[in-house]
């Protein structure tokens, strides 16, 4: 008897959840945890629910985890819209888990910057949710003059107190290529010159998580180095003597992107969600909370938020060095291997 009751309620549960997905009253959105997730919830998901009545079910995880989930769910998609960072976005496209995005169904898509729409052939596979950069950060009480070049990292007086991302951080590998191409003028295939130069650098921290970098800047363990604009300005806002700058060579940057999942049972809801995310209000809200550079035009921001954006004061998306992720993904294993042997050793 007990067994039958259990089985019946299990069946009801399964049917019930299936029905909820099918009737379009909920939309499952995969985004990141922590302050990023809170910001996406407050800036996009909540206004979306208010407008459409569709409840957003958050599926929390970082980009890599989300891609793994999408691969497991291919054939029976539970996630409808997925946020993933640049780089992972291309891998998801290659893995065939994404549905083409129909920009015509998204009225606000007309305001997208040209860089913010990612196409493979004629098909749009991703749209940007906002840019963030890896800028040059310094401790203003120990480094009195704002450095204007990445080469300042090699200054003798900062020996042992320099922070760089390690390849275990998603920015690590593309940052090596950025340093080679845009800072050191190393256009070679081998990157020998870049690795020789990196070997000379006396670092205090090669961080694998943004939190580890924030922690090291906060405790003055490191006083100069690369850090995300979001993390750096959080420290400054918290009253710490931290300065963020965009040096003359520019900064490496990437973006969080939104994708519609292949096989979604709620394509209209997904399009409406993307439309809400592309609204000037949502972009302004994300810029205020995470200092994400808006991927759309027509966003009004206060001067204080404006200067904290990934491209710095008076900059624009043109100032960002956005990676060619196909190249990065192709060279990833080799660069990681060489870093492990020569730098992390």
């Amino acid at each position: 008897m007990m067994y039958r009751v259990c089985r019946l309620s299990l069946a009801a549960l399964l049917l019930g959840s299936g029905a909820a997905y099918a009737d379009g009253s909920t939309l499952t959105v995969a985004y990141y945890g922590g302050n990023w997730g809170e910001a996406f919830d407050a800036c996009v998901a909540q206004p979306f629910t208010e407008k459409t009545g569709i409840r957003v079910v958050a599926e929390i995880g970082n980009s890599t985890t989300t891609l793994a989930k999408l691969q497991q769910q291919s054939g029976d998609a539970v996630i409808d819209v997925a946020y993933m960072d640049g780089g992972i976005s291309e891998l998801a496209h290659e893995a065939g888990v994404l549905a083409p995005i129909d920009l015509a169904a998204i009225p606000n898509a007309a305001t997208y910057l040209p860089q913010a729409v990612y196409k493979a052939g004629d098909e749009v596979f991703a749209v940007s949710a906002g840019y963030y950069s890896l800028g040059l950060i310094h401790n203003t009480s120990e480094v009195t003059e704002t450095p204007d070049s990445w080469l300042a990292l090699w200054d003798e007086s900062y020996a042992g107190a320099v922070a760089l991302p390690s390849p275990s951080n998603s920015s690590g590998v593309p940052f090596v290529l950025f340093l080679a191409r845009s800072v050191l003028g190393d256009t070679s295939e081998s990157l020998d010159q870049t690795f020789a130069k990196l070997k000379e650098l006396d670092t205090g921290l090669l961080f694998d998580s943004s939190g580890a970098a924030s922690n090291a800047f906060q405790s003055s363990e490191v006083i100069i180095g690369a850090h995300f604009n979001v993390g750096a300005w959080d420290l400054t806002d918290g009253g710490l003597p931290i300065g963020f700058s965009v040096p003359k060579e520019g900064v490496w940057a990437t973006d969080a992107r939104m994708h519609v999942v292949k096989g979604t049972k709620n394509p209209e809801g997904a399009a409406q969600y993307l439309d809400m995310a592309a609204s000037p209000e949502a972009a302004a809200c994300l810029a205020e909370r995470l200092y994400l550079g808006p991927p759309v035009t027509g966003v009004t921001l206060t001067p204080d938020v404006e200067r904290k954006l990934p491209w710095g004061e008076g900059g624009s998306v043109e100032k960002l060095h956005l990676s060619d992720w196909t190249e990065v993904n192709a060279r990833r294993a080799a660069i990681v291997e060489r870093w492990n042997r020569e730098i992390a050793n």
């Binding site: 275990s168 670092t203 694998d208």
Partner: peptide, 24 residues
């Protein structure tokens, strides 16, 4: 991983790196 500052590598870190960033 946290206390090495990315400068000492143990086997678990190497395995994690392959799973999380290199995808091998």
């Amino acid at each position: 991983a946290l206390l090495s500052g990315g400068k000492v590598t143990v086997l678990a870190m190497l395995a994690f790196q392959q799973y999380s960033t290199v995808f091998d």
